Amino acid sequence: MDKSPNFTPHEAIAQTEIAIDTFVTAKQKRLLTDSLYTSLHGQPFLIESNIGILHTQGQPLVAPDLMLSLDIGEDWWTHRHHPYSLWEFGKSPDLVMEIVSTTTGDELGAKLSVYERLRVSYYVLFDPERLLGGPRLRAFELRGKCYFEIAKFNELDKPIWLEQVGLGLMLWQGEFEDKDGLWLRWCDQQGNILPTGYELAQQELLDREEYEKRAERIESQLLQANQRTERAKKWAQRLGEQLRALGVDPDTV
C-alpha cells in the first residue's frame, strides 16, 4: 500500500470529476445508507455515497456511488475533512457500488479494474433501467487478484448473499419516500429486508395499534363475560325466589 501522497486532500479532490446524481439515484443511495445504519448493529462500519477513495500516490480519487467499510477504528471521524485514504483507514472498503444512470460510466471496464486493483471484496453494479443492456443487478467477488461474477439477474425477491460482509442484496418493488419504484435493498440471509428508520417506526406504530386493538378486544370480551355472569346470577336468583314461592328449598334441589 502506498504511503500518503505529496499533495493535500483538497488538491486530490480537485482532480476528481464531480458526478451529479439523478433524483432516483440520490433516493436509492439514501435508502441503502439509512437502512444499514438503522439495522446493522454490533460492529463499527462506515457507509457513505460519493466519498472519494485516495489509493495511489499521484493518482486522482475514485468515488463510487456507495462505499461500505466494516470494522474500521472509532477514530475515523478525525479524518472527516479528508477522503477515504487507504493508509489512514488501514484497509480498502469491503464493498463498492455503482448505480448506472448513463451509458458513459464504463462501470464494467475502467471502474471494475480500479476496484479490482484496490482489492475491494465486492463490486456491485445496479442498472435499474438496463442502460447497459444486461441484467439489472450484478455482483462481483474478489478471488485472488481478480473479480469473479457471482450473481446477475432481474428477478424480484431473489437475494444475493455476500458472505464476507454478512449482508444480502435484493431487488424490491415498493414505496420509498412516497415514490413507488424498483429499489435495491439490503436483506439478511433469509431474505428479510433490512428496514429504514421510517419503516421501523411505522412497523412499531402498527404493532402498538394492533396491541391496543387486541387489548380492547380482550377488555370487551371480559366485559361481555362479566355481563353474562351477572345475567346468570340474576336468573338464578329469580329461579330461587320462584322455587321458594312454591315451597321448594333451592339449596336442596
Score class of each variant (00 low, 15 high):
4 S>D: 01
17 E>L: 14
22 T>F: 06
23 F>P: 09
25 T>N: 15
29 K>F: 03
32 L>D: 03
36 L>W: 04
36 L>N: 05
38 T>V: 08
43 Q>I: 12
50 N>C: 08
51 I>M: 12
56 T>P: 02
59 Q>F: 11
63 A>K: 09
64 P>M: 02
65 D>Q: 07
67 M>Y: 00
68 L>E: 02
70 L>E: 05
70 L>S: 07
75 D>H: 15
77 W>K: 15
78 T>L: 14
78 T>D: 15
80 R>W: 12
86 L>Y: 00
87 W>T: 10
90 G>R: 01
94 D>L: 00
98 E>A: 10
98 E>D: 07
100 V>L: 08
102 T>Q: 11
103 T>H: 09
105 G>I: 03
105 G>F: 07
106 D>C: 04
107 E>W: 06
108 L>T: 12
109 G>S: 01
112 L>E: 10
115 Y>Q: 06
116 E>S: 08
117 R>P: 05
117 R>H: 14
117 R>W: 06
117 R>S: 13
118 L>K: 01
122 Y>E: 01
122 Y>W: 09
123 Y>W: 01
123 Y>D: 00
125 L>R: 03
126 F>I: 06
131 L>G: 02
134 G>M: 09
135 P>F: 14
136 R>E: 01
137 L>Y: 08
138 R>L: 11
141 E>L: 08
143 R>S: 09
144 G>Y: 06
145 K>W: 09
148 F>G: 09
148 F>Y: 11
152 K>E: 12
153 F>T: 04
155 E>H: 13
158 K>H: 13
158 K>E: 11
160 I>Y: 00
160 I>W: 06
160 I>N: 06
162 L>Q: 02
165 V>K: 06
165 V>M: 02
166 G>E: 02
172 W>R: 01
172 W>S: 06
175 E>H: 03
176 F>E: 08
178 D>R: 15
185 R>Y: 02
186 W>P: 06
186 W>N: 03
187 C>D: 08
191 G>L: 01
196 T>M: 05
199 E>I: 07
201 A>Q: 15
205 L>P: 04
206 L>I: 15
209 E>F: 08
213 K>I: 13
213 K>M: 11
214 R>K: 11
218 I>T: 13
219 E>G: 04
220 S>V: 02
227 Q>C: 05
227 Q>D: 12
228 R>W: 07
228 R>T: 03
232 A>V: 07
232 A>N: 13
233 K>V: 08
235 W>N: 14
238 R>I: 02
241 E>G: 03
244 R>N: 05
245 A>T: 04
246 L>W: 12
247 G>L: 00
249 D>S: 11
250 P>F: 07
252 T>V: 11
252 T>D: 14
252 T>K: 11
